[in-house]
Amino acid sequence: MDVFMKGLSKAKEGVVAAAEKTKQGVAEAAGKTKEGVLYVGSKTKEGVVHGVATVAEKTKEQVTNVGGAVVTGVTAVAQKTVEGAGSIAAATGFVKKDQLGKNEEGAPQEGILEDMPVDPDNEAYEMPSEEGYQDYEPEA
């Protein structure tokens, strides 16, 4: 019985440690998101679009440190934060509304985080759909 109880105690310690790591990862992701939003706020009209992409990228980098179902929630929060940063930029006159959601080359930025393969159960990952990809044929 002692062996059984000791095993359960060790398992509990492992769960607590994993929860603490997840909590730490979420806190880091939130900190990076805040950094990115402050970065966007300090940019001029020309830099705002690039700044919004930076927020998304920093958040995406930190999301990889967070495991399990938390990833889905962090990704949703990050996307809403990026959308909010863009709205703030438009409201303050840093950028025109028609410039939001495009990178410096004018290509749409939507789907940055949505296409990231995420499995809350950590069982399997699927690649994003290939609808947006084109076949590449090298020139002879």
Rank of each mutant, 00 (worst) to 15 (best):
M1E: 15
M1C: 15
M1L: 15
M1H: 15
D2Q: 06
V3S: 12
V3R: 04
V3L: 13
V3K: 09
V3M: 07
F4L: 10
F4I: 03
M5T: 07
M5K: 14
K6G: 10
L8Q: 00
L8C: 04
L8G: 00
L8D: 00
L8Y: 07
L8W: 15
S9P: 01
S9T: 14
S9L: 11
S9C: 11
K10Y: 15
K10H: 02
K10S: 03
A11C: 11
A11H: 00
K12C: 08
E13M: 05
E13V: 14
G14K: 11
V15H: 00
V15C: 08
V15M: 07
V16M: 13
V16E: 02
V16H: 03
V16W: 13
V16R: 05
V16L: 11
V16S: 05
A18W: 13
A19D: 00
A19M: 03
A19K: 01
A19T: 10
E20Q: 08
E20A: 06
K21S: 03
K21Q: 06
K21A: 09
K21C: 03
T22K: 00
T22C: 15
K23E: 00
Q24Y: 03
G25W: 14
V26N: 00
V26A: 02
A27F: 12
A27Y: 09
A27T: 11
A27N: 09
A27R: 08
E28F: 13
E28R: 12
E28Q: 13
E28W: 14
E28Y: 12
A29M: 07
A29R: 06
A29L: 14
A29C: 06
A29Q: 02
A29G: 04
A30M: 10
A30P: 01
A30K: 01
G31M: 03
G31N: 09
K32G: 01
K32Q: 04
K32I: 09
T33S: 04
K34N: 01
E35V: 11
G36D: 04
G36L: 15
G36Y: 14
V37R: 00
V37Q: 00
V37D: 00
L38W: 01
L38G: 05
L38H: 04
Y39S: 09
Y39A: 09
Y39G: 04
Y39C: 02
Y39Q: 04
V40Y: 05
G41M: 15
G41T: 04
G41I: 14
S42I: 10
S42V: 05
S42A: 13
K43N: 02
K43H: 05
K43M: 06
K43I: 15
T44D: 00
K45N: 02
K45F: 14
K45Y: 01
K45E: 00
K45L: 15
E46A: 14
E46C: 06
E46T: 15
E46S: 03
E46R: 08
G47H: 14
V48G: 01
V48Y: 14
V48F: 03
V48N: 00
V49E: 01
V49C: 07
V49M: 03
H50D: 05
H50V: 01
H50W: 14
H50S: 06
G51M: 14
G51W: 06
G51R: 10
V52C: 08
V52G: 03
V52A: 12
A53I: 08
A53P: 02
T54E: 02
T54D: 00
V55H: 01
V55F: 04
V55M: 13
A56Q: 03
A56N: 01
A56R: 07
A56C: 13
E57T: 07
E57M: 11
E57Q: 13
E57N: 08
K58N: 08
K58R: 10
K58G: 14
T59N: 01
T59Y: 14
T59F: 15
K60C: 09
K60T: 10
E61R: 07
E61C: 08
E61S: 05
E61V: 11
Q62W: 13
V63I: 14
V63K: 02
T64R: 06
T64W: 14
N65C: 13
N65T: 11
V66I: 10
V66P: 02
G67K: 02
G67L: 14
G68W: 15
A69W: 11
A69F: 14
A69Y: 08
A69I: 05
V70L: 06
V70W: 15
V70C: 01
V70H: 01
V71L: 15
V71R: 06
T72L: 02
T72P: 02
T72R: 10
G73M: 10
G73W: 13
G73R: 05
V74C: 06
V74P: 01
V74G: 02
T75P: 01
A76W: 10
V77G: 01
V77F: 14
Q79L: 12
Q79W: 13
Q79A: 12
Q79V: 10
Q79D: 06
K80M: 14
T81Y: 13
E83K: 05
E83A: 08
E83I: 02
E83V: 13
G84Y: 14
G84F: 10
A85R: 04
A85C: 04
A85Y: 13
G86I: 15
S87N: 15
S87G: 02
S87D: 09
S87M: 04
I88D: 04
I88R: 04
I88E: 04
A89E: 02
A89W: 09
A89M: 10
A89L: 14
A89G: 02
A89F: 11
A90H: 10
A90T: 07
A90W: 10
A90K: 14
A91H: 04
A91C: 07
A91P: 04
A91E: 06
A91L: 11
T92Q: 03
T92D: 03
T92M: 04
G93E: 02
G93P: 07
G93Y: 10
F94D: 06
F94A: 05
V95G: 04
V95L: 13
V95H: 02
K96F: 12
K97D: 10
D98S: 05
Q99W: 04
L100W: 11
L100D: 15
G101N: 15
G101W: 10
G101F: 10
K102W: 12
N103L: 10
N103Y: 13
N103T: 13
N103H: 07
N103W: 09
E104S: 14
E105N: 07
E105L: 06
G106D: 05
G106R: 13
A107G: 09
A107H: 15
A107D: 14
A107I: 03
P108F: 06
P108Y: 09
P108N: 10
P108S: 03
P108K: 10
P108D: 03
P108E: 03
E110T: 05
E110F: 11
E110A: 14
I112K: 14
L113R: 02
E114M: 07
D115F: 04
D115E: 05
M116Y: 07
M116G: 04
M116F: 14
P117C: 10
P117N: 07
V118Q: 02
V118D: 09
V118I: 03
D119Y: 03
D119T: 06
D119K: 00
D119N: 09
D119R: 15
D119V: 02
P120F: 10
P120Q: 08
P120D: 03
P120Y: 04
D121C: 07
D121H: 07
D121T: 13
D121K: 04
N122W: 13
E123I: 10
E123Y: 06
E123T: 07
E123Q: 06
A124S: 10
A124L: 03
A124T: 13
A124K: 06
A124Y: 06
A124P: 05
Y125H: 13
E126D: 04
E126G: 11
E126I: 02
M127R: 01
M127H: 07
P128A: 08
P128T: 05
P128M: 03
P128E: 12
P128R: 05
S129D: 08
S129L: 06
E130F: 11
E130W: 08
E131A: 03
G132V: 08
G132Q: 09
G132S: 05
Y133M: 12
Y133V: 05
Q134S: 06
Q134G: 07
Q134C: 11
Q134F: 05
D135S: 02
Y136S: 03
Y136T: 10
Y136D: 00
Y136V: 08
Y136F: 12
Y136W: 07
E137H: 06
E137W: 13
E137I: 11
P138S: 05
E139F: 09
E139T: 10
E139M: 13
A140G: 09
A140N: 13
A140K: 09
A140F: 13
